[in-house]
Amino acid sequence: MNNTEITQKSDNNYITKNHKYKVIIIGASTGGLKAIQPILSALPAEFALSVIVVMHRHKDTDSYLERSLDDSSKMHVKQADEKEEIKAGVVYVAPPNYHLLIEDDGTFSMSVEGEVNYARPSIDVVFESAAEVYGEGLVGVILTGANKDGSLGLKKIKEAGGLAIVQTPETSEAADMPRAAMAVARPDYVLPIEKIGPLLRKLESEG
């Protein structure tokens, strides 16, 4: 992996407009925390893209997920807020018990409409709304999970010109979600966890 290019970046380069990809959305369910941590730890503090993490979790959960991800990440990790502007170099975590959506002006909005794929937040909902806003500037990642959420959304990302990455089912704690995504969305990459972080770093430098 060519890291020199990234370490040589000046402050002036730290503007998302120069990058082909602007936003990475990672969807995960069963076994997700352990899968997301090594990906985030591979990204530098000044990563030029925004990262959004959508993980299925219990509706009354506290901030354990945010804290665990923050501990394993050099980037700043926070729960997404309503109307918050999505910025480069930040990891946003979808709040429990809400669907997360992206508005045209690059801010978050939320909804408490019913569960989609038995989930709220649903990965499909975020993927679909983000694909509409970011088009080819969007990267969708599907990791371990025991359902089918995210597969239709990943297909939408592909149709809008974005990039689709799926964790190798054999290396996933629960293989259903990666399998469904592969069947529906024809991903660009199918990789084990340890190769996804380095790939995201490489995508950062694509102009």
Binding site: H99, L101, I102, E103, D104, S111, E113, V125, E132, V133
Partner: peptide, 9 residues
């Protein structure tokens, strides 16, 4: 209304 959710519905 916030557009993303309206369009979805």
């Amino acid at each position: 209304y916030a557009k993303a959710s309206i369009r979805r519905r």
